[in-house]
Amino acid sequence: MSGRIKENVSTAFLAVLLYRTGYDSLSIRSRKEKLTEGDVSQKKRQSYGIGHRKRLRERVLKSGASSLADYELLEAALFSVIPRRDTKPMAKALIEQMGGLSAVLEAGEDLLKEKGLSHRVSHLLQLPALLAQALTQPQQNVQTILQDTGAILAYLQKERGSASPLGKGWSVFYVNVRNALLLKEFIPDNGEWGKNIQKTLAVSMIRRAIFTHASAVIIAYDTNMWGKMPKTALQGHKILSEEIHNALKLFDITMHDYICLYEKKAGLEAYSMIEG
Rank of each mutant, 00 (worst) to 15 (best):
S2D: 15
I5H: 04
I5F: 02
N8R: 06
S10G: 07
L18N: 10
Y19A: 14
Y19Q: 08
S25P: 04
S27I: 07
R29C: 01
S30E: 13
E37S: 11
D39M: 07
Q46K: 03
S47R: 10
Y48S: 14
G49H: 04
H52E: 12
K54A: 14
S66R: 09
D70N: 05
I82N: 00
P89H: 07
S102P: 02
A103S: 15
K115G: 12
H119G: 11
V121M: 09
L125S: 13
L127E: 10
L130K: 12
P138V: 04
N141R: 05
Q143C: 07
T144A: 08
L146H: 06
T149S: 13
I152T: 12
E159M: 06
R160Q: 11
G169N: 01
F173H: 04
V175C: 09
N179F: 03
P188E: 12
G191D: 12
W193R: 15
N196M: 01
I197S: 06
T200E: 13
M205I: 12
I206Q: 04
A209W: 02
I210Q: 11
S215I: 05
A220Q: 08
T223I: 05
G227S: 01
M229H: 00
K231S: 05
L234R: 09
H237T: 13
L240V: 10
E243S: 14
L248D: 06
T254M: 03
M255A: 08
L261W: 01
E263I: 07
A266M: 08
A270D: 10
G276D: 13
